[in-house]
Design a protein around this nucleic acid. Sequence first.
DNA 1: CTTTAGCACTCCTTTCCCTCGAGTGCTAAA
DNA 2: TTTAGCACTCGAGGGAAAGGAGTGCTAAAG
Lengths: 350, 350
Amino acid sequence: MELTARKKQILKVVTERYIDAAEPVGSKFIAQAMGGNLSSATIRNELADLTELGYLEQPHTSAGRVPSPKGYRLYVNELMERRSVSDQEAAAINEALGGKMQELDSVIAQAGQMVSSIVSYPAYAAAVGKGGVTVRRFDLLPVDAGSFIAVVMTADSRVKSRLLRTDLPVEAEQLSALANLLNTHFTGVEPEGMGEKLMALTGQLPPELFMPLSLAVEYAGEVMDQSAKSQVFAAGQTQLLLQPEFQDPGRANELMRLLTDQKAELPVLDENTPMQILIGPENVNEALKDASVVVASYDIGENMRGLIGVVGPTRMDYAAVAARLSYFAESLTKMFGKSNQLPPKEEDKS
Amino acid sequence: MELTARKKQILKVVTERYIDAAEPVGSKFIAQAMGGNLSSATIRNELADLTELGYLEQPHTSAGRVPSPKGYRLYVNELMERRSVSDQEAAAINEALGGKMQELDSVIAQAGQMVSSIVSYPAYAAAVGKGGVTVRRFDLLPVDAGSFIAVVMTADSRVKSRLLRTDLPVEAEQLSALANLLNTHFTGVEPEGMGEKLMALTGQLPPELFMPLSLAVEYAGEVMDQSAKSQVFAAGQTQLLLQPEFQDPGRANELMRLLTDQKAELPVLDENTPMQILIGPENVNEALKDASVVVASYDIGENMRGLIGVVGPTRMDYAAVAARLSYFAESLTKMFGKSNQLPPKEEDKS
DNA sequence: CTTTAGCACTCCTTTCCCTCGAGTGCTAAA
DNA sequence: TTTAGCACTCGAGGGAAAGGAGTGCTAAAG
């Protein structure tokens, strides 16, 4: 049972007006907004139908109408005009992206902040790997008798390093032998397999080399864990407090907590979907049940995707957010495409 | 003009009651709290004096009294019972500290989070170096023709690394020659001196080596910048929203913003002061004018101090926060003292 | 001189009630 | 199908009144 064109137009007017003004929309306003050819009474009949059908809601009997989640959904799917960003907005985004982007983590964190400031809602960002992470290469650099630097390069070309200390002194030659050992046995191995490998080598080593070896392996495990865990960075949480629906501190608090919590599980995007809009109850997460989320993804190298989401009230300006977010994501994809900061692994190159 | 003992006791009762109940304190309550030996009328006389002297304030004529900043100051300086943490609290802190602490930055960020959860107010953490940061050592590891890894170890024993790409291929031997060059000319140099040094070397190098050299130097500059800038990590911002004084979203917003802003300038501690309490208008920062901050510091190695601060309403529970924070800071100092993760530089060792 | 009982007074908070107005739903006519 | 008309609903806003916590002052008692 498709809605008539007129009903749809009314729904569109209601939704956009409500997004704009944050107050229930009355029949009189709608009649006017639709050109004044119809009387408010006619509109009221239509509104009654739309309410009956579940697209609109009434805060109380004598108030205007407000879109229900179902109404927003229809709006987003069919009614919303797919805006593209204005030249100004594009310029602003390009400028934001102009700065140099270096370590992957800080790129992601920055992306979150930029998006948040561009759309005026809180945003979160993360990177998800397509496959398991493994180490591509180890280096051990002697520092002094009791310490050395472990450098680990993962398959996705992140480089991490740490100073490690041993109880017993280790010679430089021994270190390079250890590095060889690591490169032979521990590259391309998933984190789970490492403990086993380590065990297997225990017997074959002079005892003073076991500690540095296990330290290095442990560190590698940590690095892989971190890469795999795809840390979520949130930004602009305070933007929420400016929205009228979050003036009630109780409500704001819940969402703020979600956004500030490091381990929060924020909506993730299916692979191959460029962008997704989750409205109110469509969210799995309890705290998001009466909020909306717009998520987009972009490509980072060949084995990873970046994820960037915007959180707002269900009343959020979907058209504007979607336009800016997708422009932003596309820009990022392009940027990574020609970037020389995070090259794909050599093996994958043509 | 010292206050009489009785006036002080009254101020103490008022302050503690107000901290506890968040409502103005009346003479009747005080009379009772002081043992019931005095009538509320007597107390009222004293209250009038204390108000006259500026230690107390009256929200309006017919309300009870509330401590003024000056009153809080006296309370903190003289009246507050220096609590030590309870066994339970100590246990909680020790447990929080039990996890492994690795990279300095994440230790600091975690410390902020822990403190925030321990004291139930937002907290921030940073590390400040005592002197300028310089690079202690460079390593360049060949990866493939067009890229190499730069490993930089700073004087304060932080190790950072990044994958760098060059336009022209560079041989492994050339890289190690470059590393030597870097170690000879760029160690112990302040960031400002680097550009100059780089210039001086330009002529003496085969042109294909200039790019990798300048990339490495640039990276070293970034690392030093980062270390010197002492990034501030904030945590637990949402705790603010639970405080009755921040139910007004406008007020909360300002402070939240301060705490969420990466570049925020939060109170820093003088060297050699173990802990400091800044009450309301004592804060330089405009947004903190009607909030209070408790800051403590702890030692990290020999050339750095960690800073950890708690932000709350002026009505915050100074005794509890101060006790927990100083216990926490002391624990951290101990931890770093015997830690083998971030050793002081060898040259400094006995 | 200090303390206290007594009491009028202030001013916030809560409650109740009233009005106002926006908006509705329904009916009956065009 | 559309529209005018109208009664009705319900929240928002605005006093007015009641209640109550707390004060400041006075005058007497210790």
